[in-house]
Design a binder for these strands. Structure first.
Length: 611
RNA sequence: GGAGGUGUAGCUCAGUCGGUUAGAGCGCCGCCCUGUCACGGCGGAGGUCGCGGGUUCGAGCCCCGUCAUCUCCGCCA
């Protein structure tokens, strides 16, 4: 930490006098201000000292204006010139001077303020700045360094713009929901652990050692209780906490636009959120949002795209070839179909021109994604397939029927995956996205939203029982409760996800508001009466007091902003994000605590970690 | 938990087949410079090659281990 160079010092000793206060924002200066004496506050973005003439680019959050000290000019001040000579990068300054037009031919068309400059008459170094750990104008800096000095990283205009855009999104959300008569209500951060779903962050309880609060994975239960309370329309910009492995689009703490409504149907929620998203995206104005949002059932999404979060900016849908191959003699397909698996195909437009290595890479990727292999053939000019590993294994009739059904054109590559329904979907989803990206079909200027509805209520768990496929509080559709004992896998829930460009953008459902249904669902998932009572007793009891029908949803704020800023990493749109293991290099958190604190909590650390 | 990538100056990186004193650009420090806007010129400082061990006459480079970080898989109601 010790700096070898001396700390720069400021000549300013008095901050009591307010002569340094700004009279105008740097970025607002135009030729209409010429002749005015102004004071600007900000940071030295760049200093250019010619020995005689000195320039300082002064930056505040509104922009940059050029400060000049030139001995040949009328407003020249010897004292200000001396002070300006001390200024270095990122010094915090107050500059007073006269706005003048720039010399003819010296205007800077790259700056909005480039027609003018400030001839400095007074300059006060509000605070000097030591040598920077990285250069703020370097767009490619080690992320750990950026996060360790995040306050400097955030000085970069590009980062200010991101946080500003995030702010505009939040403002637009609030404006929209206020107009729709939602109440903004806060819910607790210290709450109860309910061990379903993700791992909880726990907070030890001092007054009764051995007990813990949990940080909420979402305000789910509270918002439902608020419906029981008659709030009718609730929302919150809510922090959520999940102790799970991170990803580029996942942080241990993240923000949801959490909302819930009473006396509404699924349709009401979908329509409201669709209007909200469109209003927000269009108010920010950086992207084109396609509307209306198409809707796919879960089954349809899996069948057509292999995914319940399809990127629908492009087609290249999957084609089930099972019926066309009913009589096939090709052993791989034959066996798969006989065992109840699927054979599905995807076309790769122009893929026949790929070099051999490009085709091999497809196969490698398919294996990475879980396929045993990747079969393909190439479509030639006569719309027949004579090339590719699969060409010889299928009859001409089979090939032409497939080419027809897939919609393949001459020059296409048609790739096949033969496997279980799940693996086929998963692999072809990945291949589809890979092909879409390779072909440049994923324009970032377009936000292609879609709704995925009718999720299964249950899916098989690892132990041969059932777990919830989506959310344990989701109301089954129509009469589907009748199937709970006979065919639970066939039950569908009034669940919905909003998907955008292949990202899950929101998730919600019509909730169960009747205690007996909720109890039956939880029992089916293998919870005992005791477990139900301990974990959900308060919910079931609340529902017994005249709970209204209600439904809700929670769009993820971070991902929405990330899509609007073209970032592929959620950390870019969070002021103070965490690194991989949940570590915060700026605060150096998490950290060890005093033995006294541990003792108060009744905690003993069993093993010391690696040195 | 698993796989892959990365780790060399403050930052971004190069470093050949294992060879003598580990380089560049930017930044930093000093001097010079009267119209620049990524100013320019000259000079200088700055290195535990992530860490530990091994192979070798010799390791930034090869081997083993380990740590950190990024991405992906698992995981994420």
């Amino acid at each position: 930490m010790a700096e070898l160079t001396a700390e720069p010092t400021s000549s300013a000793t008095s901050v009591a006098a307010a002569s340094w206060k700004r009279t105008i924002n740097s970025g607002d200066l135009r030729d209409t201000h010429v002749g005015q004496t102004v004071t600007v506050n900000g940071w030295a973005s760049s200093v250019r000292d010619h020995g005689g003439v000195t320039f300082v680019d002064l930056r505040d959050r509104t922009g940059i204006v050029q400060i000049v000290s030139d001995p040949s000019r009328n407003n020249y001040s010897e004292a200000a010139h001396t002070e300006a000579g001390k200024v270095k990068s990122e010094f915090c300054l107050s500059v007073t001077g006269v706005v003048v037009p720039r010399l003819v031919g010296k205007e800077n068309p790259n700056l909005p303020t480039g027609a003018v400059e400030i001839e400095v008459t007074e300059i006060e170094i509000l605070n000097p700045c030591r040598a920077l750990p990285f250069q703020l104008d370097d767009a490619n800096v080690n992320e750990e360094a950026r996060l360790k000095h995040r306050y400097l990283d955030l000085r970069r205009p590009v980062m200010y713009d991101k946080l500003r855009l995030r702010h505009e999104v939040v403002r637009a959300v609030r404006q929209f929901l206020y107009a729709e008569n939602f109440l903004e209500i806060e819910t607790p951060i210290l709450t109860k652990s309910t061990p379903e779903g993700a791992r909880d962050y726990l907070v030890p309880y001092r007054l009764d050692p051995g007990k813990f609060y949990a940080l909420p994975q979402a305000p789910q239960q509270f918002k439902q209780l608020l419906m029981v309370s008659g709030m009718e329309r609730y929302f919150q910009i809510a922090k959520c906490f999940r102790d799970e492995a991170q990803r580029a689009d996942r942080q241990p703490e993240f923000t949801q636009i959490d909302l819930e409504m009473s006396f509404v149907t699924q349709e009401d929620v979908l329509s409201l959120v669709e209007r909200m998203i469109i209003a927000v995206v269009e108010s920010v104005g950086t992207k084109t949002v396609l509307k209306p949002f198409p809707r796919f059932t879960y089954d349809e999404a899996i069948a057509r795209f292999g995914s319940d979060k399809p990127d629908i900016r492009f087609g290249l849908e999957l084609t089930d070839c099972g019926d066309l191959l009913a009589e096939t003699a090709f052993a791989v397909f034959r066996t798969t179909l006989d065992n109840g698996g699927q054979v599905k195909a995807i076309r790769y437009p122009g893929g026949a021109k790929l070099p051999r290595s490009g085709m091999d890479e497809l196969g490698e990727r398919a294996r990475e994604f879980g396929a045993k292999g990747l079969a393909y053939f190439l479509v030639d000019e006569e719309k027949t397939a004579t090339k590719g590993p699969l060409a010889k294994n299928l009859t001409d009739a089979e090939k032409s029927a497939i080419i027809e059904k897939v919609g393949a054109e001459p020059g296409d590559l048609v790739a096949f995956v033969a496997d279980s329904k799940e693996t086929t979907a998963k692999v072809l989803d990945r291949l589809r996205r890979l092909i879409g990206e390779r072909l440049g079909l994923t324009s970032k200027d377009t936000l292609a939203y879609c709704w995925i509805i009718d999720f299964p209520v249950f899916e098989p768990d690892e132990n041969g029982g059932w777990t919830f496929a989506h959310n344990p509080f989701s109301m089954p559709k129509g009469n589907d409760m009748r199937l709970i004992d006979t065919d639970p896998a066939a039950m569908r829930a009034q669940c919905y996800d909003l998907v955008c460009n292949g990202y899950e953008a929101a998730s919600g459902s019509v909730r169960i508001h009747k205690p007996d249904i909720q109890r039956a669902i939880l029992q089916k998932m293998g919870l005992t009466e005791e477990q139900i009572a301990a974990r959900f007793g308060h919910m079931l009891e609340a529902f017994a007091f005249g709970a209204p029908p209600h439904a809700g949803i929670a769009p993820g704020l971070d991902r929405l902003v990330m899509l609007l800023t073209d970032d592929e990493n959620i950390r870019e749109v969070i002021a103070f994000p965490k690194m991989g293991g949940g570590y915060d290099p700026l605060m150096d958190a998490p950290s060890e605590v005093d033995a006294k604190q541990l003792a108060e909590l009744g905690l003993v650390i069993k093993e010391t970690k690696k040195a």
